[in-house]
Design a protein around this nucleic acid. Sequence first.
DNA 1: CTGTTAGCGCCTTCAT
DNA 2: ATGAAGGCGCTAACAG
Lengths: 358, 358
Amino acid sequence: MARDNFSNDRRATITDVAREAGTGKTSISRYLNGETGVLSTELRERIEEAIAKLDYRPNQMARGLKRGRNRLVGMLVADLTNPYSVEVLQGVEAACHAYGYMPLICHAANEIDLERRYLQLLSTYRVEGVIVNALGVKEETLETLTRGGVPVVLVDRSVEGVITDMVGLDNIEAVRMAVQHLVNQGFDELLFIVQPYAQVSSRRVREAAFRDTIGALGVSGASGVSDVSGATIVLDLDNDETLAEIDGRIDAAQRRNRRVALFAANAPVALRLALHLKERHGADWQRQVALMSIDDSEWAELAGMTTVRQPTYTIGERAVEFLHERIEGAVVAPRECLLPGELVVRASTSAPTPRGST
Amino acid sequence: MARDNFSNDRRATITDVAREAGTGKTSISRYLNGETGVLSTELRERIEEAIAKLDYRPNQMARGLKRGRNRLVGMLVADLTNPYSVEVLQGVEAACHAYGYMPLICHAANEIDLERRYLQLLSTYRVEGVIVNALGVKEETLETLTRGGVPVVLVDRSVEGVITDMVGLDNIEAVRMAVQHLVNQGFDELLFIVQPYAQVSSRRVREAAFRDTIGALGVSGASGVSDVSGATIVLDLDNDETLAEIDGRIDAAQRRNRRVALFAANAPVALRLALHLKERHGADWQRQVALMSIDDSEWAELAGMTTVRQPTYTIGERAVEFLHERIEGAVVAPRECLLPGELVVRASTSAPTPRGST
DNA sequence: CTGTTAGCGCCTTCAT
DNA sequence: ATGAAGGCGCTAACAG
């Protein structure tokens, strides 16, 4: 019931400490800010005692109010359910701690309204900068912050009309690498499956890269490969109809003795496809149709699925670095940092088994 | 370059708005706090104009400083990599918004030091309450907060020596249900696999429940079942040696014509086991040994694994409810809210295939 | 080396 | 119905 000291539940303030130590608030403040060497050892000890006795913690809010910076940075995440986001987050967190920032994590949970509300909230809490993994923000929403002079760094996706730092995967190279792998493995009918682009630039970029790569393949005819054809299918995860279309395409191609591979634009798509294929072809669906994807989620290893792993952690770190520079006042032209992905080859893309070979 | 209004990058303050509207700060404050009906419509309009023109946002920090509440609540998560945590988080977030709180998410990433640092940070930012999914906090660490009168609600795990509200899965019933299911399916050699207990109470509770259930089974001999035996194995995820032990146990049991089922105490364990079994028995490991687990992760469906799904979302919501009551000043005895799990039956536990039957 | 003073942006009596 | 003044906890000149 009674605490050893008579702190009536109210946290001690700097004034309390000053009184307890028999000195002025300034000295306490100096002590807190590490202005050591300016305090007599004797005073310092008294202060330390007082702080310990009162279990004093400086109030960050008050601090921030006074000096105009509160060391808060916002991190807006579109979907924590996506392992990609969590991994990026870990990089962000680590870097934040290194720079002394406190990351304020906001999870939009795929709700575009939430996203907007959070952005406002962040501005209201006077964060010093924001890292945005945008869902569907418009330029205007972000202006809430930019107008206040709050730096913004984009992750994975750019936002139309917003020119600022952005860091993400080198999608073009990643897709090229993946397609090349599939072709090398002998697949010649590639289906690229991607969610509706909506505002998500990376989806669009990946799709374009897919088509370009296929196109280039046809022209060059390099490495003795020829006659590779590819198509894109837009798959809404909440709508099963396109799944039927995909099935149709696969069947048709296999009937023509083509070796089909599905290329999922990201992990959620890959999972949806895998579930569907399993439902349709049974436990050994892997032998019926090849599946690979961008994003190396935890079940990829279990399913033996080839993937392109994103440098997620580094993406998070780099984002904070950029942000930090701008918070510190750097005024450089907007940068774009595209990091390379890594091909993780597994069984799913090893042996093409066209229907004819069964 | 130039903004339409001449706001020199510095966010407008209440004083600016007052000047712009040609009135005092008090009226602005009243307007902000919805003390409508006390303001002449004429003044109100002028205020609205001024706010819009200056793009004014009240500073939450300053507000909090003055009134002593900043509407911040902390949410300390042990491991966001665990889907369980993310799901709980979503419940927490939703409830927070409903109550008007801003959740401050802290991710300890399984680092016990980080956890402690975050707890201090939270206290420093004067959060009004904290929801803790503890990793290894000790009573003393939590005291940082409790001494300041900050309410704490525990999630999933209790902390030794800390008596406060706690909400989580009804582990005893969940384990009983799972074991019962396995027995009903004809398995008679049950291996319970769990991570080192460390400070995590739920692991200990689940293990105890497992043994109790097995014990009760032997005594009652109910439903015609007899001779079910069970054992616990503690598996350190970073150490492969115990995996070999598990293999040994499985082999030995199967040699005695027992029908073996592995019961993973949570999703991370289940994944580790699945990966290992796949490596050892090949793609159709499922036919060699049955695996079920607590936690229904996204790949469970893909792998066709039976699980006990936790009411994660509700757990998060309930935690916030408890917290809210205490923040509002309720002084009730510590409560314990144990929510029921749901058995999700899939193929993995359907057909026991003892070695003898091969 | 140390204390005094004046705010940071906002809310809250207390007058008017 | 409205405004003036004081203070939340802290820092940053400015003296001493």
